[in-house]
Write a protein that binds this DNA or RNA. Sequence first.
DNA 1: CGCATAATTGATGGTTATCAAGACCAGTGG
DNA 2: CCACTGGTCTTGATAACCATCAATTATGCG
Lengths: 256, 256
Amino acid sequence: MKNIQPELIEPCEEAESCLAEKLRALAPINDRQSDLLAALEKERRTIEPGEALFEGNAPVNDLYVLKKGWVLSETVNAQGMRSVVRVHHPGDIIGASQVPYASTPYRAIARSEAIVCPFPRQNLVSLLSNSPRLSALLLTIAMIESAEQEDRASVFRRNSAKAKLALFVQQTFGRLRLMNTLLHDRFHCPLNQTDIGDVVGMTSVHVSRTFTRLEEEGGLERHGTFIRVRDESVLSAYSGYIDRYKQLDLSWMPET
Amino acid sequence: MKNIQPELIEPCEEAESCLAEKLRALAPINDRQSDLLAALEKERRTIEPGEALFEGNAPVNDLYVLKKGWVLSETVNAQGMRSVVRVHHPGDIIGASQVPYASTPYRAIARSEAIVCPFPRQNLVSLLSNSPRLSALLLTIAMIESAEQEDRASVFRRNSAKAKLALFVQQTFGRLRLMNTLLHDRFHCPLNQTDIGDVVGMTSVHVSRTFTRLEEEGGLERHGTFIRVRDESVLSAYSGYIDRYKQLDLSWMPET
DNA sequence: CGCATAATTGATGGTTATCAAGACCAGTGG
DNA sequence: CCACTGGTCTTGATAACCATCAATTATGCG
């Protein structure tokens, strides 16, 4: 397997507000709104691969805007098996789904060198109080991710290993492309096959076999830590993938 | 199997605003906020069991507050298998996860006699614009449901059939109890085993077998269309169930 | 080069899907 | 009262898929 030159990967790192970049990819926001968002990303913290951002059953005080790198939210279920609940990419708010809770059962762990901007949960309130439009955008993101989750649920609980992996690749690629429009047909995946297995719900052994089959069928190619989407139609035939960042209608959103 | 007298089931039906009832179960809201919510439930529509509320790939114009009955959001995946994406109970906003989209791929179908209150998507904006607290509550509900979904995902994609069914029963019971504090240890389930199978991702045949085993182990009992939770610890040992409506910390929410 | 981690490949077994047949149940009409 | 019917649930036999265990090969890094 030949290597492919890693291209420009994390354009978000340089932005004044990574979250603002993400929201802007969905709908226009004005300077005042942009400033409100930038206020969330004053602090900065770097995390090494393998290091934990927070541990399971820790109190929820801060949320984190992810500026660079991949972070996994994972948990251990009743039978002691690890399960990766979410894969966070730049622009995501890590811990957003834990906002209403006193503590989170999840553990967040970096899978590549990551930069996060911690901010207290209280700061969310200033967004909600000062901008209906930003409130609507936060709700929109929650709904988009919810739709993605529903898609995964549909496929992961009944379908074949090929469908699971195909959906994983397509959803991941779709999310990365939102923040990095330079991506063409391949992306860097810092997860090993054990991680991927814990995301889609299969063993690392079967991840390996299934990747090989999808390669044989021409759906994708692997080159080291890069994955190339070669024929989307092959993958979609298994996964039924829908790009949840397309087909949006945000005309209803308030202006301010 | 002896029959059990169906007790008082749908207290929400009589409330001025079913949604307000649900939010009030989470955090106090004042009269002004309550009025804003009641404005969403002016219209009313009755749906018979088996009847569709909307079909797949229909444009998203209205959302629906469910006042009474069970409604399923379902879809057909790439391999032509039916998948139940969500089970809606009284107090739910049907179609909430489709707010940002021009159309929805899902089909909503009633499984018992249902009453819904349709309201245009635009009306959400008046909530967001006029009450940061209601915005926060809407976000909170989205996050709670997201957490429930993550729990399902963790269990459904790797675990045994017993774990899947146990979680289904416990999550369903937990959600119903939020709106009906009279429920003690049993609830009416209008879904047949094919429906349940399409919710949890297994065949109706295996649902039957697994229910029988869980009964033998003392976790639950079935009496006609009623399910009685007999020993939560037995079910939790499989499912690792967490009540996501407990352990909330909503102290951060804005007042107005 | 040597070591550790990750990926691959093969053999075997368990869990669940699938197919098929029969039991149960409520409602209907002779 | 009883056959009939459609739906649902149950039970059994078989097979497919994936997990598991184990051994080997590849990859990356000091």
